[in-house]
């Protein structure tokens, strides 16, 4: 087994009194793609949003439990959520390039606002990240156009490049292809395969086939409970739980 990237211990997430995620214990390994599947409303988005402390930005939301990153609990009292998010990046469901901002600025804004002022360094980051996101060839001649002028799929890859620019060891993706057409989806899936060489990817997906195609490990959630977690091949061919089997064979969900 390879090194541990992230360890989740007894994680609970709440909206006011409602417990949306219940006692999750999971371990993620470095350089793997981990899919989270489950029927809609099963708390998978809420769960993934706990992993970089974005969940608590919603009003009335709270979290209990531990998430261990590099030996430290990100929910410790002295942990700074802003600092943590630099190590755990996130790509959202809808492509959301920053408004009135060029493609170049969209990619480099993270490092720039952290204090990187060196122009050639920023150029370098922009180029390498756009290349990693497989977008460079399409946009290299129009880096100063508005980010929102791109197509949906391109925008989503721009958002991935933007996340890569802060170079986080772990990247969370919350249904990154649900707003995209099949061709753009394939591109994003290829991309995930590519970037797992350097990063650990945790991706929520609404699409079982997608999980099967891209993920090394898959977790199955129902109503905030983790039903089953394991190698993707095991989950899909030889599920241990009845619920998983039903869901995968299309009998429920």
């Amino acid at each position: 087994m390879s090194e541990i990237a992230l360890e989740v211990k007894n994680l609970n997430a709440y909206f006011n009194d409602f417990r949306a995620v219940k006692d999750i214990n999971l371990t993620y390994y470095k350089n793997s793609v981990n899919a989270i599947i489950g029927p809609s409303g099963c708390g998978k988005s809420t769960y993934i949003r706990c992993l970089n402390r974005i969940h608590e930005e919603v009003e009335g939301a709270s979290v209990s439990g531990e998430v261990i990153l590099g030996g430290k609990n990100i929910y410790a009292d002295n942990a700074d959520p802003v600092e943590i998010r630099r190590h755990i990046g996130m790509v959202f469901q809808k492509p959301n390039p920053f408004p009135s901002m060029s493609i170049y600025d969209n990619v480099t804004i993270g490092p720039k606002l952290w204090g990187e002022k060196n122009k050639s360094k920023l150029d370098e980051i922009a180029e390498s990240c756009l290349k990693k996101a497989a977008l460079w060839d399409e946009v290299k001649d129009k880096l100063h156009q508005d980010g929102t002028s791109l197509s949906g799929g391109q925008q989503q890859r721009l958002c991935i490049a933007r996340t890569l620019a802060i170079n986080p060891p772990i990247i969370l993706m919350d249904e990154p292809t649900s707003a995209l057409d099949p061709i753009a989806t394939v591109k994003i899936e290829d991309l995930m395969n590519e970037i797992k060489k350097e990063y650990t990817v945790i991706v929520v997906t609404h699409n079982m086939q997608q999980a099967r195609r891209i993920a090394d490990y898959t977790s199955f959630f129902v109503l905030g409970d983790l039903i089953e977690h394991g190698l993707t091949s095991d989950i899909f061919t030889n599920p241990k739980e009845k619920k998983t089997e039903d869901y995968i064979s299309g009998n429920f969900g």
Binding site: N52, I54, E57, V82, E83, I84, R85, R86, H87, G89, M90, F92, N96, F98, I109, G110, L113, W114, C159, R162, T163, I166, P168
Partner: peptide, 9 residues
Amino acid sequence: EAGLALGLP
């Protein structure tokens, strides 16, 4: 949220 997710205050 995307801004926050970049580790910006």
